[in-house]
Amino acid sequence: MQRLIKTLSLGLTWVARIATGLAFLVIIIAVVIQLLGRSGVIDSVIWSEELTRFALLWLVAFGAGLGLRSGALVNVDIFCEALPEPWPWRLRLFSAALTAVFAFSLLPSAAFFMRIGARQTAPALGIHMNWIHASALVTLAVLGTVATLRVIGMLAGTEKGRPDNLEDI
């Protein structure tokens, strides 16, 4: 069981890192194209601004899970970590479980939002907006999965729930 959890966690981390890197690469390329167009080196390209915004959404979709996993998200734990054991562990478990429940409970609404996008088209790029709205669905799925893996790891005793204790980040 512990091996399966670690394999799932590492696999999700690998996919999220690659997707985040690709989204960041798209942002870099689109911004360079914008700069070249504004400086007169090339003709101005209308779709570069829109592509930058859409790539940012996908960057967040995969990067949020990595942030939760590594502890890079905003976290206020001065009070919680000052409590006597086992309260900090319990609060970290509760926080991870609440994150998972919240993320997974919003998945149906995100799927509905994505389906609405099938009837819309991005003005400059001309692609269906469901591909862009899917980023909300992916964000919730990744956050919920990372939080669930943390809960399972804590209950199995393989981790204490502290993001900074993950050696494989």
Rank of each mutant, 00 (worst) to 15 (best):
Q2T: 01
L8Q: 01
L10Q: 10
L10I: 09
G11W: 03
G11C: 05
G11N: 00
T13N: 01
T13F: 02
T13R: 10
W14H: 00
V15Q: 01
V15W: 00
V15R: 03
R17V: 09
I18R: 09
A19M: 06
G21M: 04
L22D: 06
L22H: 04
A23K: 06
A23G: 01
F24A: 12
L25M: 03
V26T: 10
I27T: 13
I28C: 08
I29K: 05
I29T: 05
A30F: 10
A30Q: 03
V31T: 14
V32G: 02
I33F: 04
L35G: 07
L35D: 00
L36S: 11
L36Q: 11
L36N: 04
L36Y: 09
R38T: 13
S39L: 13
G40K: 08
S44G: 09
I46F: 14
L51V: 14
L51S: 07
T52W: 00
T52F: 03
F54P: 01
A55S: 07
A55T: 07
L56A: 11
A61V: 00
A64Q: 09
G65W: 08
G65E: 01
L66E: 00
G67R: 09
L68S: 07
A72F: 04
A72I: 06
V76E: 07
I78R: 10
I78Q: 04
F79M: 09
F79R: 07
A82W: 06
A82D: 09
E85R: 13
E85G: 08
E85H: 15
E85Q: 15
P86C: 12
P88L: 02
W89I: 05
W89C: 14
W89Q: 13
R90N: 04
L91F: 13
L91W: 08
L91I: 14
R92I: 08
L93F: 12
L93V: 13
A96H: 15
A97C: 00
L98D: 06
T99L: 14
T99D: 07
V101Q: 02
F104I: 14
L106R: 05
L106D: 01
P108N: 09
P108I: 12
A110I: 15
A110P: 13
A111S: 10
F112N: 14
M114G: 13
M114V: 11
R115L: 15
R115K: 09
I116S: 13
I116Q: 07
G117M: 12
A118F: 14
A118W: 13
R119F: 15
T121G: 05
L125G: 08
L125S: 07
L125Y: 05
G126P: 02
G126H: 12
I127M: 06
H128W: 10
M129N: 04
M129S: 01
N130R: 13
H133N: 11
S135K: 12
A136Q: 10
L137H: 08
L137T: 13
L137R: 06
L140K: 05
L140Y: 12
V142K: 04
G144L: 09
V146R: 04
A147S: 05
A147V: 01
A147I: 11
L149Y: 02
R150E: 03
M154S: 08
M154F: 03
M154Y: 03
M154Q: 02
M154E: 02
M154N: 06
G157M: 03
G157I: 11
E159F: 07
K160T: 15
K160E: 12
G161D: 09
R162M: 08
R162Q: 11
N165K: 14
L166V: 15
D168E: 12
